[in-house]
Amino acid sequence: KTDGSLIKWMDRIKKAQLIILDDFGLQPITHEVKLILLQILEDRYERAATLICSQLPVGKWHEYFDEPTIADAILDRIIPKGHRIDLKGKSLRSPSKHLS
């Protein structure tokens, strides 16, 4: 933060046409990262596309963020304009595909 690299990185993220957050919610995140995520989503709201891939059901995101105010703020920037796609079926990464 002190050298300005975080601000430069966030500015690049803000300008990207699409960002993809893959495997979202697999590990706990710090309070600081929650605030950075909130800022990224705020900067991009109604300006650019954000794709979030997660095995964590949206219904458990409040529990994941463990800070109701931040969780509400983040979800307020995702849910109203979001399109949710729930995938069903077997994983394409099944062990039988990799054995040869």
Rank of each mutant, 00 (worst) to 15 (best):
K1E: 10
D3T: 14
D3H: 11
D3K: 12
G4A: 07
S5P: 01
L6V: 14
L6W: 03
L6S: 11
W9R: 14
W9E: 13
M10L: 15
R12N: 14
R12G: 13
R12Y: 12
I13R: 12
K14M: 05
K15R: 14
Q17Y: 11
Q17F: 12
L18F: 06
L18Q: 10
I19C: 02
I19H: 02
L21F: 11
L21T: 13
L21M: 12
D23W: 10
F24E: 12
G25A: 11
L26I: 15
L26T: 13
L26W: 08
Q27N: 15
P28N: 15
I29Q: 11
I29G: 07
T30G: 07
T30E: 08
H31N: 05
E32R: 09
V33P: 00
V33H: 10
L35W: 04
I36L: 15
I36G: 01
L37E: 04
L37C: 03
L38N: 06
L38P: 06
Q39R: 15
I40R: 07
I40N: 09
L41Q: 07
E42I: 06
E42Q: 08
E42M: 03
D43H: 00
R44I: 02
Y45W: 01
Y45L: 02
E46I: 03
E46Q: 06
R47Q: 12
A48V: 09
A49W: 02
A49L: 08
A49G: 04
T50C: 01
L51C: 13
I52Y: 02
C53F: 12
C53R: 11
S54D: 09
S54R: 06
Q55T: 14
Q55E: 15
Q55R: 14
L56I: 10
P57A: 02
P57F: 04
P57T: 05
P57C: 01
V58W: 01
V58Y: 02
V58P: 00
V58D: 01
V58E: 05
K60Y: 04
K60I: 01
W61S: 08
W61M: 04
H62N: 08
H62W: 00
H62F: 04
H62T: 06
E63D: 10
F65L: 10
F65N: 05
F65H: 06
D66G: 14
D66M: 10
E67S: 02
E67Y: 04
T69H: 08
T69K: 08
T69E: 05
I70L: 13
I70W: 03
I70G: 07
I70M: 08
D72I: 07
I74K: 03
L75Y: 00
L75W: 05
R77N: 06
I78E: 00
P80L: 05
P80H: 12
K81E: 01
G82D: 04
G82T: 03
G82W: 00
G82V: 00
H83N: 11
H83L: 06
H83Q: 08
R84K: 13
I85W: 05
I85G: 07
I85R: 09
L87K: 11
K88E: 09
K88G: 07
K88M: 08
G89L: 03
K90Y: 05
K90A: 13
S91N: 11
R93T: 07
S94P: 00
P95C: 09
S96A: 10
K97H: 14
H98N: 09
